[in-house]
Amino acid sequence: MRDELLAAVDLSAYYGERKAVGNVSIAFRRKAVTALIGPSGCGKTTLLRCFNRIHELSFDARVEGSVLMEDQDIYSAGVDPMAIRRRIGMVFQRPNPFPTLSIVDNTMAYGGRGLSRAQKQERAERALRSAALWDEVKDKLRSSPLRLSGGQQQRLCIARAIAAEPEVLLMDEPTASLDPIASAVIEELMASLAERFTIIAVTHNMQQAARVSDVTAFMLADESGTGRLIEVDDTAKLFTTPSDRRTEDYITGRFG
């Protein structure tokens, strides 16, 4: 088993003519948390959205280059994007539970096709436990997810993503819309999830990146607005002795 599960090779992402991410090559370590940091508009979210082929759902969006998952290019012709998305789950910036489904149905929405009802129920419970939500919702599994707090909703979205049993979990600023306490719960959760999943998390919060990640990648937009990967390193090293001048400027708060 190789140490790297997912890798981008010379990956560029476009919205129409605008190149939002330019020629990024990066490999992600199995069962580690990798943080993508950088100022607003540096393309980190767009890059993340290339990894589960969600980017191409945007209007007029396309991708060049390749993303390898265990040496298979997920952008090659015969690959079904839906099969890829079942292996690579995603958590979004704002909690987005399905409003018309109950809490438990949100978790089982699509996870575990072909399982019996009892098996699904069991898997839902496991996912909710993994998302540290079970104790708070076990008495109201049939009620609407919209009655939960923002932090609980976000953990429900995490449960929904992991109920599909993916290998990779993409998180797009998962705490951006939460208060500090709810954010701390999610951060703790990320650490425990990293035992089972390969996590790639976008964050604009450097403290958060330093707290939760093993590896940090720093991105910056060049003068034409195209996001470039500047530096990738172990989090401890990147935040103490960055090798690129621009990384140092960013983490010391000189811009961004």
Partner: peptide, 29 residues
């Protein structure tokens, strides 16, 4: 219906049909 619901559904590896019938139409009913 907010696009993030569609993206949430798509990110779980669903077909457009499943997204339309199980997420979008119920939300719009």
């Amino acid at each position: 219906i907010p696009g993030d619901l569609r993206e949430a559904s798509a990110s779980l590896g669903t077909t457009k049909w499943e997204t339309a019938t199980r997420v979008v139409l119920p939300a719009a009913k």
